[in-house]
Simulated scan of single mutants.
Amino acid sequence: MFGEQVQSTRAVQKRQTAARIVEAAAQLFTELGFQRTTVRRIAAEAGVSVGAVMAVGDKESLLGLVYDQAIADRIPAPPVAVAGAEAPDAAEYLGHYFDPFLALFAENDDLARAYFRTLARGRPENAALGALRTLTEENLMAALVHAGMPEARARLGAQVMFAGYLGELMLLATRTTDPEQTAARLEATARFITAQEGN
């Protein structure tokens, strides 16, 4: 019993320390930029050792955690169908689902590009991207199903929408497009997906 309490306390302390480290990293990345931020500086800002920071992750991993949390905080809930009311507009929801994420990436172009490079490397700590994909596809699918699309087709539409979003992020990262063009293409993709059922 006592051993379980000690383990529980240590687990809580570990989570709190990790959260403090990610918060310090987010602050320094924003203030100094990715290149000028060092693990040693993150450790000092968080009030922990360099080893404690490295236990959470290296600089790229920390940037991934910062963005993953910021993205998770902005995920819009799917529209809910109300009995007797008109079905929610799936094209509108899909077309603007990624707007908060695009706004996040536009806030700091240099950090966004560093984050995209981390994603492109496909490191194991990018597991959060898989969780984001799952949640996003479930939300998009729910919106399509609520609008009357069969579930199998809605799942495929949600997958296409997410893949389109990732492609657009990569184009933004390489500066071959701009946020307005990205938003317009995502809206066009949403209209295309929803039009396949004759909506």
Rank of each mutant, 00 (worst) to 15 (best):
L186K: 10
F34P: 01
P79E: 00
A81E: 06
A52I: 05
R185W: 15
L65P: 02
S49M: 06
A44M: 04
A152L: 15
R153H: 10
Q69S: 07
A18I: 00
R74L: 12
T9I: 12
E197W: 11
F29K: 00
A52T: 11
A114D: 05
A147W: 08
P78D: 03
S8F: 13
G64W: 02
A103G: 10
Y93M: 08
Q181C: 14
G95H: 04
G198A: 07
I71P: 03
E187F: 13
E31S: 09
E138P: 05
L171Y: 14
A52M: 09
A85L: 09
S61N: 15
A46T: 00
Y93H: 06
T182G: 10
S8P: 04
A127L: 13
G64V: 04
K14I: 12
M170V: 14
T30S: 13
A11W: 13
E31H: 09
T182F: 08
G47I: 04
R121P: 06
A83K: 15
A114T: 06
G157W: 01
R41A: 05
V160L: 15
Q181H: 15
A90Q: 03
L94K: 01
Y97F: 12
V82A: 09
T37P: 00
A184K: 10
K59E: 09
V82E: 10
T9V: 12
T174M: 08
L186Y: 05
R113S: 07
L104T: 07
V53E: 05
V80C: 04
R185S: 12
R117W: 15
R175W: 15
E23P: 03
Q13H: 12
V22G: 00
T176S: 14
G84K: 06
L169Y: 10
E23V: 03
A143C: 11
A83Q: 12
E4T: 11
M141H: 06
A131C: 07
A127P: 07
G51Q: 02
A90Y: 05
A190L: 07
D58V: 01
G57Q: 04
A173V: 10
G51V: 05
Q35H: 07
G3N: 15
F2K: 11
Q5P: 01
R40P: 03
G157L: 03
G122Y: 12
A143Q: 01
E45K: 04
F34W: 03
L94A: 01
I21P: 00
R15Y: 09
L135A: 15
V48F: 01
S49F: 06
A183Q: 11
P79I: 00
E60K: 02
L63S: 00
A158C: 12
A183K: 09
A24C: 00
V6S: 06
F101K: 03
E86Y: 08
F29A: 01
R20N: 04
A18F: 00
T118P: 13
L119Y: 08
